[in-house]
């Protein structure tokens, strides 16, 4: 028996909104420690990794490890029907060929129940090595969203360069060029609005803005996002998910392969 109940059901809604257009089908791996998912987009340029700790749920029971393969667009479509204040419960028997989703509006005496068919997916699982990144940038997630959105009006790719004097995001296209320079913020009065930049070694790398705009759909999950970069390796864009007490209950990490000069 598998059962996971999330009182803040909007977290599940937001996670699905953040991955459904990037990955069409994927498997959730459920164990006593929590639920996780790893999948590449169809063109194999990016990888998304989601983790939700068992502690992050209000009730969590997993008697046996389960792999729940499903169409994420269908799941997102159903979960979209849940209200933002709804409690969401996911249930599956051990030999599941479907899962049950239960939505309970907090103030009402109603229960909405949906069943979703499961799929057998032969998904490739990638081993991601521990990496000491040369550059780590923490910035407000809405700022990152805006940088990606605005620069994609000009060009298809962004060049991120980080050196002692700060980080620059730049792009060029047919109509011209644009760039955004970020400096570390001085005070920690508003941690959500802070920009912190750690540079071990300067880097300059280019990435497709199309994917970064996809990743920015996770903005509602966290006020801050981190970008980790090293020469010639994929960029990591991480949104850490917190509960009401500000404890970490999971994350969405997106990995994006760099563009290289031919």
């Amino acid at each position: 028996m598998f059962e996971a109940r999330m009182v803040r059901g909007f977290i599940i809604k937001r996670i699905l909104e953040a991955i459904k257009d990037l990955v069409s089908e994927a498997s959730w791996d459920c164990s006593t420690s929590g639920m996780s998912l790893q999948a590449m987009d169809t063109s194999h340029v990016s990888l998304v990794s989601v983790s939700l700790k068992a502690d992050g749920f209000d009730k969590y029971r997993c008697d046996r490890n389960l792999t729940l393969g499903m169409n994420l667009a269908s799941l997102a479509q159903i979960v979209k029907a849940a209200g933002n204040d709804d409690v969401i419960t996911i249930k599956a028997p051990d030999d599941a060929d479907k899962i049950t989703l239960i939505f309970e509006p907090k103030s009402e005496t109603e229960t909405w129940e949906y069943e979703i068919k499961l799929m057998n997916l032969d998904s490739e699982y990638l081993g991601i090595p521990e990496t000491d990144y040369s550059v780590k940038i923490n910035l407000p997630s809405h700022k990152f969203q805006r940088i990606c959105r605005d620069l994609s009006q000009i060009g298809d790719s962004v060049t991120i360069s980080a050196a002692k004097d700060g980080v620059r995001f730049s792009t060029t296209g047919d109509l011209g060029s644009g760039n955004v320079k970020l400096n570390q913020t001085a005070s920690a009065d508003k941690p959500d609005e802070a920009v912190t930049i750690k540079i071990e070694e300067p880097i300059i790398l280019s990435f497709a803005l199309k994917y970064l705009n996809h990743f920015a759909r996770a903005t509602a999950l966290s006020p801050q996002v981190s970008l980790s970069l090293s020469k010639d390796v994929p960029l990591v864009v991480e949104y850490v998910i917190h509960d009401d007490d500000d404890d970490e209950i999971g994350y969405i990490r997106y990995y994006l392969a760099p563009k290289i000069e031919e």
Binding site: M40, H44, E124, G127, P234, Y255, L256, P258, E262
Partner: peptide, 14 residues
Amino acid sequence: KSSQTRIDSFFKVL
């Protein structure tokens, strides 16, 4: 001219 690399060329398939 830059070209897009693939993510599975960086990480090993398990």
